[in-house]
Design a protein around this nucleic acid. Sequence first.
DNA 1: TTGTAGGCGTTATCAA
DNA 2: TTGATAACGCCTACAA
Lengths: 335, 335
Amino acid sequence: MGATIKDIAKYTGLSIATVSKYINGGNVLEKNKVLLDEAIKVLDFKINEMARGLKTNRSMTVGIMIPSLENIFFTSIISNVENILLQNGYSSIICDYREDPHLEREKLDFLLSRKVDGIIMVPHSNNAAFIQSVVEKGIPVVFIDRYLEDVQCDVVLVDNINASYNAVEQLIIRGHKRIGIICGPSNIYTTKERLKGYVRAHEDYAVKVDNDLVQYGKYDVESGYHMLIHLLKMENPPTAVYVTNYEMTLGAIMAINEKGIKVPDQMSLIGFDNIQLAKIVKPSLSIVVQPMKEIGEKAAQVLLSRLNKENTGGPSISRLKTELLIRESIKSVQA
Amino acid sequence: MGATIKDIAKYTGLSIATVSKYINGGNVLEKNKVLLDEAIKVLDFKINEMARGLKTNRSMTVGIMIPSLENIFFTSIISNVENILLQNGYSSIICDYREDPHLEREKLDFLLSRKVDGIIMVPHSNNAAFIQSVVEKGIPVVFIDRYLEDVQCDVVLVDNINASYNAVEQLIIRGHKRIGIICGPSNIYTTKERLKGYVRAHEDYAVKVDNDLVQYGKYDVESGYHMLIHLLKMENPPTAVYVTNYEMTLGAIMAINEKGIKVPDQMSLIGFDNIQLAKIVKPSLSIVVQPMKEIGEKAAQVLLSRLNKENTGGPSISRLKTELLIRESIKSVQA
DNA sequence: TTGTAGGCGTTATCAA
DNA sequence: TTGATAACGCCTACAA
């Protein structure tokens, strides 16, 4: 198996303590340094994190928990999180709780039993109390994407309200008065925020919101499709639709294509999240772009600063800006 | 922090050794059993896996390595893998190597330093020798989706050749003689296999393969789109197209919609992997369905049987069957 | 700068 | 059935 510090000590003739010290950045005589480096290379020494963790009470492991591994928004973020954590010597245990609060609780318990040093997660609203108890155990938690009032922890969000506001505003400016919105599940934070921006834009421009135009889906391809079909079938269908995540945007586009709706002539469309998609589709799609890379990196950094005790202050909220890309999929409505 | 065995011993008046034995399934007097259960509950005892791992030389952790966290085929599989492993007390460290062999090597090294008990991975061809050296260290490795000749380990595959064969056969039977295929990268195992099935079907029905109809993409949405556009632009375009993964199927559909191609009247289409997608699209899409759940579960089981020493035999190959769903997107060509 | 020695929480051996 | 004790590999006073 792998060589231990003891082996290095034997090889170099130094003591275990000296070797350990060197490995942890301590000073040794130049000649010993050379010798140690040689031994480490020759014996292919790798620190045993379990032994170290037992002693230091740090596992150098963080838990990552998301609602679904089949949602590219989340997986894209954790891909970046994982990368940064790994660069800092942390390994990450990734769990998905399949949108099931019960499973979330269970896996959270598992993470605790694994003595993770910290947790980055997209929380489900039902477990606030339990998560708060984790925080109170002294395990730093960072929320991504969603905010839970009752938990005192760092949060990395995007400015959902203004993301929606800006998107919807562009539609209103172009004369649209009946704007459909395809939301996520009604109890999810991002759903509420994105809807709020939609409503606020309407208010500011004195356009009445028709609740029939507000559709709740499940943030998956299927609901995007069905909600759009539903909107089309209305007696008085919207002249523009705003879809609030990537998967539903895909579904909506499929519905539009199937029904032979001409975008933007018959309907303006603003989608979400995937910039490649936006480029591919014809006419090119206007979209709200969330900075997945930045979100992931920010979350990782926030957690790392907690783990390193660089940040011991109160909970922080990072609110990243989205970008609105206006392309060909929207146009002014003919009065 | 969490209670230790020592605490349990103190609480019950028993010795550390007895407590440890009980926790690991040993026998104790009935009255002590009651006492111990009480103590465990009251003190909220959780085993310290680091200490245990140090002693037993097992980390109860497995590494999972995939090329991309943005490919739903992989993430769907590992979601199932992770679930089963967790049920068996294992935590999984998930890494994506972003299709970069160098990064794969690096992360593999990281997993080793974390003393994972086993590895489940979608391998990249360039690291065969290194992976083989891992196997020789006695760490069980299970390949998913791709096969590497030079590595002696268990593999869980789908029957790609016949999956393609059956799909293409259906097209040929319907009179198609110019069938486009949108493949993945040419150096990837699944690409070769799926192409082989395509070629074999042509051979068996004495239909000539036109190499111009064989397009290599990158298994992402964008390439699906571009390859299909490319096929359309040919002087003598195909009357049917077979797309060999989910993301490219998405892209192809978008291209078709954009160009206003009528499926199946102007072109027959067979896609890949996502059954929901198949239902959503109109006309309903014919697809090759891979059993993601079974793949994940099988891989997990194979690894577990190695970890438990239930299986100490030579490398096994599990080849799971795909399903071909014929829907409305294909029709006979008018002679 | 280097070394000695004790202990982190667990398992496992060997007596009792 | 139970208990005392020596590891596992590492870190860390404390001493030299």
